[in-house]
Design a protein around this nucleic acid. Structure first.
Length: 493
RNA sequence: GACAAGGUGGCUGAAUGGUUAAGGCAAUGGUCUGCAAAACUAUUUUUUAUGAGUUCGAAUCUCAUCCUUGUCUCCA
């Protein structure tokens, strides 16, 4: 199915600041690159939001029938700790700190990263390349940039020449900065700097003798600059011009700006057609920060072992919470917001179960095709998941009304409704039914149904002491019984 | 200081020029129930940080002020 031929998708392009109709370089194919994590510590919840947003975008593009190649890198080298002097990178610093091999640090946090994303039900990207695996490609790009005259070598390091680049190109078009302003705003503190201009950035840094992570190059032993890996890997796997480049807002400048400069300098044209930026996540209205203790890790949310939330929350609840906001908006995480999302999430999941059991009628009392279209319209409007979720709750209401006998649905419409709800909830939003995810689910269901039988017998005999005991004690165990016209059902919270 | 994204009800969060400002949560009443819960249903912001302006019409456009977040040094 090639839905993309009928659906008109619009995306917010940070490069133009406008919502544009999405048109791929090659019909039917999408190349998407998202800046991945630097694996020197446990993955941050804010990072998770960004990757979750692009996971949803990845899923929707695939649903539309595109063949998507989604590349998300692992930065395992190249992050300078302090650009001005010794040029020690983040991975190497952590390694010394913990008395580990750099690659041991990389391995540990890569595993943590993958486990966390898996808990949030993110699909793996098509390719997950590492910076250290692409040193040769990075060196080749540096040679190209040097040959075109947009870089210079100083004492074993190579820097990108912003002034030279600006003579023929525009540096700062993504972030809305002007080079003159940047120069005017820079206090010239680094007099000992090798760079000709403070705006210049490193393509290659010379490794001091004690530096552990090092590779040979035409300019001596050293390591690549941070911005370069993304250019090298995106070009290698997606080509010199590809469709979507994503990342967090905070990467807009300088990282993405530098990527544009590097690509334009080496290949001669703009690398990306649509720049998509996910917005930040705050915690209780303030930025997340380890130093002020206003910080929480995914594990701590799942386990409840934290000082910020009143109870543990399932990964799908957190994912649902994030999907209730648009990816370009700042989202604030807090206890009340998560509690509200949890309620809504379980209401949605319950309705999906109700839908399975519903008896179809001759005709439908509402327009299912129209409802389905509204869902697509929401997603086509720059992946507007909050509006999609509003429509899903409209479906929830209909489902419950059908169950009450106040609405009807035909057999054909029931199938359409069921298919689309499942598609949007599980395939596109990437939610998981936490209850059915349990291996012991069958056993638990059997036991609870037995208790429901016993309770209903007691109720029939007007033995309310017994029936209430069953109901109340189940509730404290997290099992909520629901008496309806068709009998008693339950949900696990 | 410069640049960027924002400021919407009790909380969360959509809607960027057009009749009643979506949805979730919360609260209150009703239906249902042995009672509750769930579900359904009605009600709850008379108004979109503040002030001025443009317009027949503004949350939406313009200007000013205040505030939040991000970036300018590594950061999703």
């Amino acid at each position: 199915m090639q839905l993309f031929k009928d659906q008109i998708l619009k995306v917010s392009n940070s490069l133009t600041g406008e919502k544009e109709v999405f048109k791929t370089v090659k019909e039917g194919y999408v190349g998407m690159y998202v800046c991945g994590p630097t694996v020197y510590s446990n993955v941050h919840l804010g990072n998770c939001r960004t990757f979750m947003s692009f996971d949803m975008i990845f899923r929707y593009l695939k649903h539309l029938g595109y063949k998507v190649r989604y590349v998300r890198n692992i930065t395992d080298a190249g992050h300078l700790e302090n650009d001005a002097d010794e040029g020690e990178d983040k991975i190497a610093k952590k390694a010394k700190l913990e008395q580990l091999e750099p690659m041991e640090v990389v391995q540990r946090y890569t595993v943590d990263f993958h486990e966390t994303l898996k808990a949030f039900n993110l699909q793996p990207p098509s390719i997950e390349p590492t910076a250290t695996g692409h040193i040769i490609e990075q060196i080749e790009i540096i040679k190209e940039i040097l040959a075109k005259g947009f870089a210079y070598e100083v004492n074993g390091s190579v820097y990108f020449d912003i002034i030279k680049f600006s003579e023929s190109n525009t540096y700062g078009k993504l972030s809305g900065r002007k080079l003159e302003d940047m120069i005017a705003n820079t206090r010239d503190l680094a007099a000992q700097d090798e760079k000709r201009n403070p705006q210049d950035f490193a393509l290659w840094k010379k490794a001091e003798p004690q530096h552990i992570m090092r590779w040979p190059s035409p300019w001596g032993d050293g390591f690549p600059g941070w911005h370069l890996e993304c250019t090298a890997m995106s070009t290698k796997y997606l080509g010199e011009t590809f469709d979507i480049h994503g990342g967090g807002m905070d990467l807009k400048f300088p990282h993405h700006e530098c990527e544009i400069a590097q690509a334009e300098a080496s290949s001669g044209h703009s690398p990306v057609n649509y720049w998509l930026h996910a917005n930040m996540l705050t915690l209780n209205g303030k930025k997340m920060s380890k130093s002020t203790d206003n910080n929480i890790y995914p594990d701590e949310i799942f386990s409840g072992d934290n000082r910020i939330l009143s109870k543990p929350f399932a990964p799908s609840v957190v994912r649902f919470f994030m999907m209730q906001a648009h990816y370009t908006s700042i989202l604030d995480l807090g206890n009340d917001a998560l509690l509200a999302s949890e309620k809504g999430y379980y209401r949605l999941m319950d309705a999906l179960k109700t839908l399975e059991k519903i008896e179809p009628s001759e005709s439908s009392s509402f327009d299912v095709a129209n409802w389905q279209k509204a869902c697509y319209d929401a997603m086509n409007d720059d992946f507007n998941t909050p509006v999609l979720i509003a429509h899903l709750f409209d479906a929830v209401k209909r489902i419950n009304l059908i169950k009450e006998g106040q609405e009807t649905i035909s057999k054909a419409d029931k199938k359409v409704l069921q298919d689309s709800v499942n598609t949007f909830v599980f395939d596109i939003l990437g939610l998981v039914d936490q209850d059915n995810n349990d291996n012991n689910a069958t056993t638990i269901n059997g036991v609870i149904n037995l208790l429901i039988d016993l309770r209903n017998n007691a109720r029939a005999n007007k033995d309310f002491a017994t029936s209430d005991k069953i109901r109340d004690e189940l509730l404290t165990l997290g099992v909520q019984l629901k008496d309806g016209k068709e009998g008693t059902t339950f949900s696990l919270n």
